Amino acid sequence: MSVHQLPGEVWIQVLGYLCVADKHSVRATCIDFRELVDCGLLWKDWTIVLAFPKASYNSPFWEMLRRRKINKVVVRSTRAKDWRQLARCLPSITTVVMERSSQEILDVLKNFTHLKHLAVRCSCTSLLLTASAVHKAERLTHLSICRVQFPSKSIEHLISAFIDFRNLTSLVCHDTELNEECTMTTYLILGCLPRLKHLSLTCGRNVQAVLRHTTPLPVKEAHALSSLELIHCDHSLPQDAMKLLPNLQRLVLIYKYSDKDFVADIWFAAMREDLKAWLSALHRLSTLVIKLGPHVNRYVPNLIHLHIDPWPSCLGTITAEIPQLFPKLQSLKIRGKHVPEEDFLGFQKMADLRYVEMLDSRPQFSEMAAKLQVLTKYRVQVIDSHQRDILDCDCSL
């Protein structure tokens, strides 16, 4: 059968069902299939990882990426010449992840004229990140900084740099020396970035003092934020902290323990009460993620996505409370360890539930999953935990 006996759009539809390896096998058969497989529609939102081996990449490789319209790249090279080649061969790149960062590489970023999303990770030396590092600071909408050193330890210095990226809608700042000083004070960041919708911070020692700062947060800026992540949140926030963020729809809390005996006897009980207070203030909350923290014992009627992995790492009999606390859940991500079968099957009570994602596996899990699917007439899909997005850092794992 000739390739031309079917319209190209039909072949694209068929090829879309193939895995990457099978696509490449088909591509190797003839020129016509090579052109079909390299169609940009088959590689939409695809991210490529470039390590730049000693042999480097040849012209046909870059031409293939251009035909596929690849514009998201994770780079694992620290050689400036590799970055210059990337900018020259893929001029339409909009997303760049620098897995190993240096000042020399930062100086090459201005060659990426369409850059919108930038992630800077793992620097061994201090980096000077300013608006002049990119072609157009106002074009940048997503900025992620992880395990990066800065020449100044002043929080005001970095905040002043953020001001130049005035169109940021997403800011991630993890494991920097600055976090230990004052946890990237939420009210300062929102004050200088009025369009910010997503904020993810690694909390330091002073997070409680920061959020209890007497300077009020401007209402207009606070209303823009819809997603907040606090990582290593091992100190209690004030119970009225979330009142500053009335439009928050997504809350991620990842805790870190330094003294488990203290946690069990004093801190853990206090955190449960704080969590109840936060949730009571977040009337628009639709997504909640809690890792290594207290279980939720607050009724949240409008929550539709829940990921709960408490400390200790088992839900046990707490599972039975989930249908009553979150009646409108559509997706649930839990760890199955010590979850009684009766309580697991009780998820059928949630009429809107569509997905249950398991963070672990156990011998009798497949049998329990099959029973739940039968009880819900296959409305609920039970799936294994997904792999993380390669564009995300691993701080929240």
Rank of each mutant, 00 (worst) to 15 (best):
S2N: 15
V3I: 07
L6N: 02
P7W: 03
I12M: 15
V14R: 06
G16Y: 00
Y17M: 03
L18T: 06
V26I: 08
R27P: 06
A28C: 05
T29M: 03
D32C: 05
G40W: 00
L41I: 09
W43A: 09
V49Y: 12
S59G: 13
W62T: 01
L65Q: 08
R66H: 12
R79T: 04
A80F: 15
C89F: 00
T95R: 00
I105Y: 10
D107I: 11
V108M: 06
H114S: 14
H114I: 11
K116P: 10
H117V: 12
A119F: 01
C124I: 13
L127P: 05
L128P: 09
A133M: 15
R139I: 13
L140H: 12
T141L: 03
S144N: 14
S144M: 14
R147C: 12
P151Q: 08
E156L: 00
E156V: 04
L158A: 06
F162I: 02
D164M: 01
D164C: 00
R166K: 14
R166I: 02
L168C: 03
L168S: 02
S170Y: 11
L171M: 05
V172T: 06
T176Q: 03
E180K: 12
E181V: 14
G191P: 00
P194L: 00
T202S: 10
C203K: 05
C203Y: 04
G204L: 02
R205G: 10
T215A: 15
L217V: 03
K220Q: 12
A224L: 07
S226L: 10
S227W: 10
S227N: 09
L228E: 04
L230R: 03
L230C: 11
L230A: 14
Q239L: 15
K243I: 03
P246V: 04
L248K: 02
S258F: 15
F262K: 05
A270W: 04
S280R: 04
S280L: 08
L288C: 08
L292G: 15
V296D: 11
H307I: 01
P312N: 01
S313N: 13
L325P: 14
F326K: 07
K328P: 01
L332T: 01
R335G: 09
R335L: 06
G336K: 01
G336H: 01
V339I: 10
P340T: 13
F344W: 10
K349V: 04
V356M: 06
E357Y: 07
M358H: 03
L359H: 09
L359Q: 11
S361L: 13
S366K: 02
A369I: 11
A369E: 12
A369D: 10
K371A: 08
T376D: 02
K377A: 15
V380T: 10
I383K: 13
S385V: 03
S385Q: 09
H386C: 12
R388G: 12
C393S: 09
D394K: 13
